[in-house]
Amino acid sequence: MALEVSHVVGGYSQIPVLKDISFDVKDGELVGLIGLNGAGKSTTINHVIGLLTPHKGKITLNGVTIDQDSQAYKQQIAYIPETPVLYQELTLREHLEMTMMAYDLDQQVAWKTAHGLLKTFRLDNKLDWFPANFSKGMKQKVMIVCAFLTQANLFIIDEPFLGLDPLAVNDLLHLIESRKQQGASILMSTHVLDTAQRYCDRFVLLHDGQVKTEGTLSELQAALPEAGESLNDIYLSMTKVDRS
């Protein structure tokens, strides 16, 4: 069942940014949320994670809405924001411990997972470092480790490749594939369309706060045969048509 966004109208004021959008992310599926700046990607994500309340419509995660049970809803989600958000007074170790407590994880099991992730992202000798010691890319890796430390049903990843070196990008993609194979649902917003084309199962193309089209790459190619073969070509063609 996973995530279902149904006829959502919403935004930051009474003027809606999102205009009756609907899409879903199934279990074991990676869905790419694609769109230009201002298309509504971040607004969509903020509604899904509960920072914004829809004016209309409903968002359901495995049969639960945030209004029905806020804790049960939010504990199913792990979120990696575009800009890392860390507590300056907490070390990396303390960030991990806080994540374990927030998600009510078994400490022994969670630390075993954490050590593997720390080694993968080359942070295993930095447990006592504070955020001020980290580069932007390292801060992004901390967010990745904290998110994948959990056993979330839904991972929401916003522009994950910004600031990451090529090795870290490859490690993240392998990690996403592994969690997907374990049945997790993943919604990923990105401008890196060639990478999205290779790894995403389906795509939701947003433009001007609306879902212009969605589906697998082959379904998008069939729906827009004149656009071209690549995801980049299809999206550029769609936005050109909208502007004409």
Rank of each mutant, 00 (worst) to 15 (best):
G35D: 09
P131G: 04
A147Q: 00
V31S: 07
M138Y: 11
E89Q: 12
I21R: 06
I59W: 08
D20R: 05
E29Q: 15
I59G: 14
I144G: 00
W111S: 10
Q151S: 09
I45C: 06
L90P: 10
K56P: 13
A132P: 10
I156C: 08
G40Y: 04
G40R: 08
F155E: 00
N37R: 12
T120H: 01
R93Y: 07
T65F: 02
Q71R: 11
M138I: 06
L52Q: 11
K126G: 08
Y73C: 08
D20C: 12
D158T: 09
T120P: 04
F148D: 09
T44F: 11
A39L: 13
F23I: 04
D124F: 05
V109R: 09
E29I: 01
T150E: 02
R122V: 10
L96I: 13
V85G: 06
V64A: 05
P54I: 00
M98Q: 06
A114I: 04
Q68A: 13
V145E: 04
S135D: 11
P84N: 03
P54V: 08
S135Q: 07
Q88F: 04
I156K: 04
N125P: 02
H95K: 01
M143S: 15
D128S: 07
T44N: 13
L118S: 12
P54T: 12
Q140E: 05
F23K: 04
I34N: 11
Q76E: 14
K141Y: 07
A39H: 05
N153K: 15
K126H: 15
I157F: 00
Y87E: 02
S22R: 10
L127T: 14
K119E: 15
K119C: 09
Q140P: 06
L149I: 01
H95M: 06
I49E: 02
K19M: 08
T44K: 07
L127Q: 03
E97I: 08
L123P: 12
F130N: 08
L61H: 01
H95T: 02
D69Y: 01
L117N: 00
I80N: 14
G40P: 06
H47M: 14
I49K: 06
G40N: 09
K136I: 13
E159C: 08
Q75V: 07
M138C: 05
F23E: 03
T91F: 00
N125Y: 10
V31Q: 07
T83S: 07
K56L: 15
S70D: 11
E89T: 14
H115E: 12
I80A: 01
S42C: 06
T113I: 02
I80R: 01
A110I: 08
Y73R: 12
A132L: 14
F148Q: 01
L105Y: 12
M101V: 04
T91E: 02
F130M: 10
D124R: 07
A132Q: 13
D24Y: 11
T65E: 09
H95E: 02
Q108C: 13
D69T: 08
A78P: 12
L118G: 10
L117K: 00
K112W: 09
H47G: 04
Q68R: 12
Q140F: 03
I156R: 02
L117A: 00
F155L: 03
H47T: 07
T53P: 06
S42R: 01
D128F: 09
